[in-house]
Amino acid sequence: MLGWWTVITTETLAQRAAPGDGGKEATLATWDSGLGGMDWILELCKQGKAEQHAFNGYPNRFTVAASVVLPILACGIREHLGHFNGPEPSAWKGSVTVHQERIAACTPEQMLLVEVWDQS
């Protein structure tokens, strides 16, 4: 499959990079998408609202304030219908997992980690 697997977590860069099971209870949302599925976070980087820390696809790592990304999640992850360029994430039907109770516990200033894994 050509595309991306996205994970949004409350873990820090150091916590996520450490060996172990990767704090599953810190995961806020995950989804699979097609080739354009990383465009939304790259757009946030261009706008200065997110910062990219790893670039190799295994994974791409970004940090972004909860106040930026959580309103995007609140709108819902729309169904992926092909290549998409824009500010909203999109996902293959049935691949979205969102933990609303964990999202509700985030503070606006909290930094979140977004990982985007190459699925090719």
Rank of each mutant, 00 (worst) to 15 (best):
I8S: 00
E43R: 12
D39R: 09
V7K: 10
E11W: 02
E51N: 09
V7A: 02
A26Q: 05
T12G: 01
P59K: 00
L2M: 14
G48A: 10
G37R: 03
W5G: 14
G48Y: 08
Y58D: 06
P19A: 05
N56C: 08
A54D: 14
P59C: 02
G36D: 09
H53F: 13
L2S: 13
W4M: 14
E51P: 01
C45L: 11
S33A: 14
Q15M: 09
W5M: 09
M1Q: 09
Q47K: 15
A18L: 06
A14N: 00
T63I: 10
A29V: 04
T63N: 02
A14Q: 14
F62W: 01
R61W: 10
L44P: 14
L2I: 12
H53T: 13
D39M: 10
H53K: 07
D39L: 06
W40K: 04
A26W: 02
N60M: 14
M38N: 15
T12D: 01
E25S: 12
A66D: 07
A65K: 06
A66I: 02
G36F: 01
L28Y: 04
K46Y: 12
T9Q: 02
G22H: 02
L28S: 08
F62L: 01
G48W: 11
E25T: 04
T12S: 13
R16L: 14
A50L: 07
G48N: 08
A14F: 03
G23I: 05
R16V: 10
K24I: 10
L35A: 05
G36V: 08
N56G: 06
T27F: 11
T10E: 08
G23K: 06
L42M: 12
T9L: 06
T27D: 14
P19N: 03
F62C: 05
I41C: 09
